[in-house]
């Protein structure tokens, strides 16, 4: 089983729209051979194009949170003093701010009155679904929750199991933005990273950082330049960067509102339009497929 992970570092470069198009093209070639996975659990958007029908829905319970039991609390202040996250306010009564609590259990352990409960945290939900491009694994982290890395790991595990069960040869994952916890989790076990970049100062800067991260974990990567005609100088610079880093260059795509038009209709761009832009996306997907052959 091969896993392609679509990343970008910077948000809004077109990761999700292109993942949806790749899912369409993969299904067109061999329906049911790909498990599609949305690893951007914080702000998942792929379902807005794929309209999956849920077959399994499960709670995601991870970590704990501390809750002070007022009737037992003696207001000694030890919890406030010991919390390294500033999560326990002292006045008027000691209270744990659930948004700051990291679930470390220090206050629970050191409270002399045993007045702090430690409750499992229901942080979100995850789903197994069917979409018109094949089976899909996705989730939703409740707003403001943590443990996104653990939820990403869980989704990857489910996607892998599903792929084995359905004899799928490919897992295609839409990754989270950034380079932190959820991205690091999503990189674990990935076979090939496809970076969607854009020729802007932020796009180049963030590509450099996400590339360094891929190198750190020794995962091969390739680069797409989306909105390539916005700035030809930076576009050329990104190509040079690919050559320096010996990364696969996967192609250019022009700045084109057709991506948004397709999104509004809930379609992959390759379903919505069959002219220039989609031709360019098909070419990119072919290049990715060739690159996949090299690392298989």
């Amino acid at each position: 089983m091969f896993e392609i992970l679509v990343l970008s570092g910077k948000g809004g470069t077109g990761k999700t729209s292109l993942t949806a198009a790749f899912a369409h093209l993969a299904a067109e070639k061999s329906m049911g051979d790909t498990v599609i996975c949305d690893l951007d659990v914080d702000a998942p958007d792929l379902h807005l194009i794929l309209h999956p029908q849920q077959t399994v829905s499960e709670d995601f319970v991870s970590g704990h949170e501390a809750v002070i039991l007022e009737e037992k609390c003696e207001q000694c202040g030890i919890c406030t003093d010991m919390c390294h996250f500033g999560a326990v306010s002292a006045t008027p009564l000691p209270r744990v701010n659930p948004m700051k609590c990291e679930g470390c259990k220090v206050c629970v352990t050191f409270c002399p009155a045993q007045a702090i409960a430690f409750r499992p945290k229901h942080c979100g939900e995850w789903y197994l679904s069917e979409s018109r491009f094949g089976p899909m694994v996705h989730a939703r982290l409740f707003p403001g929750e943590e443990n996104s890395g653990r939820l990403v790991s869980l989704l990857k595990q489910r996607a892998k199991e599903l792929a084995e069960q359905k004899s799928c040869s490919l897992v295609l994952s839409d990754g989270p933005p950034g380079i932190g916890c959820p991205v690091i989790s999503s990189l674990s076990g990935a076979s090939l990273v496809v970076n969607v970049s854009e020729p802007t100062p932020s796009g180049l800067h963030d590509l450099e950082r996400v590339t360094e991260l891929c190198e750190h974990f020794r995962i091969p990567s390739g680069v797409i330049i989306n909105k390539a005609d916005l700035n030809e100088k930076i576009s050329t610079r990104i190509e040079e960067f690919c050559a320096e880093k010996k990364m696969g260059f996967l192609g250019h795509l022009p700045h084109n509102p057709v991506i948004t038009e397709a999104m509004i209709r809930g379609q992959a761009v390759t379903e919505y339009e069959s002219k220039d832009f989609s031709e360019a996306v098909r070419k990119v997907w072919n290049t990715i497929s060739e690159m996949k052959g090299k690392y298989q």
Binding site: G11, M99, K100, P143, E145, S148, P177, G178
Partner: peptide
Amino acid sequence: PPGVSCPALNAVS
């Protein structure tokens, strides 16, 4: 930062 999980909340809190 983008998103709605702990880093974003931390930034606006």
